[in-house]
Design a protein around this nucleic acid. Sequence first.
DNA 1: GACCATAGTATGGTCTGACCATACTCGGAA
DNA 2: TTCCGAGTATGGTCAGACCATACTATGGTC
Lengths: 241, 241
Amino acid sequence: MDWQPVKKKRTFEEVLAQIERRITEDGLTPGDRLPGERQLAEQLHVSRASVREALRVLETLGVISSQAGRGPDAGAVLISKPESALADLLRLHLGTTSLSLEEVIDTRLMIEQWAVLHAHAAHTPEALEAMGAALARMEEAATPQEFVDHDVAFHLGVAMLSGNRLLASTMRALRQTIHGFSVAAVERAGQTDLLMADHRRIYELARAGDGPAAARAVTEHLARAYPRAPRDPAAPGEPRT
Amino acid sequence: MDWQPVKKKRTFEEVLAQIERRITEDGLTPGDRLPGERQLAEQLHVSRASVREALRVLETLGVISSQAGRGPDAGAVLISKPESALADLLRLHLGTTSLSLEEVIDTRLMIEQWAVLHAHAAHTPEALEAMGAALARMEEAATPQEFVDHDVAFHLGVAMLSGNRLLASTMRALRQTIHGFSVAAVERAGQTDLLMADHRRIYELARAGDGPAAARAVTEHLARAYPRAPRDPAAPGEPRT
DNA sequence: GACCATAGTATGGTCTGACCATACTCGGAA
DNA sequence: TTCCGAGTATGGTCAGACCATACTATGGTC
């Protein structure tokens, strides 16, 4: 038999494990409620502090949301907000330089390319609608801040083409993380005509179902938006077709 | 002026914000230490419980690691383990069905394709070495469990070709999340000859610097490993070149 | 009977103070 | 010089209390 790790789990980790087990075994889904902190503490024979630390972890990971008060909506409710956790993750690791802005932007390009190349039929109409609406609002944007807000919505629509919620959540988190950088880039550029032309082109190509062409358009767009970011030139081998 | 959100932040969130500020402003990097819990509590005029909840969040996000005792290594030390946070995130959201296995596996294909297509010269030798070593160990694997362990190392090497730490961490988390699924797949298949042939092909193509061919090999490999997972056939538009 | 104000109560959020286990530090003994 | 034990700073946990919040039920008023 294999050796068992002898590490002593901390109390709150045991609580965490049991709550997770309950979630999966009982098939709890977003909207369902967890027992109150005091009740959990009593049933698990631990202190409320330990329960709270476990719940804090779940909240950090975007799995639950807590509200005080009484009634059906009080207490810990299951949710599904992975993007907040991802955004926190990226922001903090950028802060400790264990991640660089280039890597984040590279990842963004990867997702958008993939999304337009692998547009999922069932989700395409919805995504295109979001993209179209964002396009219209971008036209009327008065400030870089506003423009970027709708730009985020547009590119989130691009990610949604894939029909993959993990990619959509990651895109939300990415954009949240590089938000300040995006606004600064638009302010520096001064005008948004070229970016808007890119957007329209991406939109039309996606609507036409021409994945490869849309992927090229996305690549050019991001190269324009982040002039010196891509590290592609240093790559060995043959250029991308 | 814009309206300010009137939401009252919880105490531990304020603590969290101040610690984060200290990290970025002081330029702390992995290996550096944070003040002790009692000291933080006193300086911020909050209770130790609030400090602990903030630290728990940071630990969950893979930014710090805490150890008891005295000496240089005691207390909260900055680290960089985004993969553990990502793995927790994926596992829990899979548990609440706000994410599906297909989406996770799709994401894996996306990363590996991207990595071989955008291999970064500076990181290629190191990645190839990891892939080669994993290849050799896979040959000698006696059990599906062992095989999968080294398979994980191989595909982590693939992700490392990109030189993007975010992708490498995500790959680690992905594989950790689908580990049980992978083992079951290998056990079901009974033999690993085809998979090994794929691996060698991917390795050789990556070493030759032929990104597009390697991308095709990766796609075929994953299609073989997860027979009914990819949703690609349902995609509209033209096939990938 | 319909409506509204008030007391009741269950919830999360926070604090205080204590105790334990751990693991380094330092002083004294061999 | 070496080694052992007391001292001590650290995180981990607990118990009990209090507050703010927000629903619920009660009862009075029209």
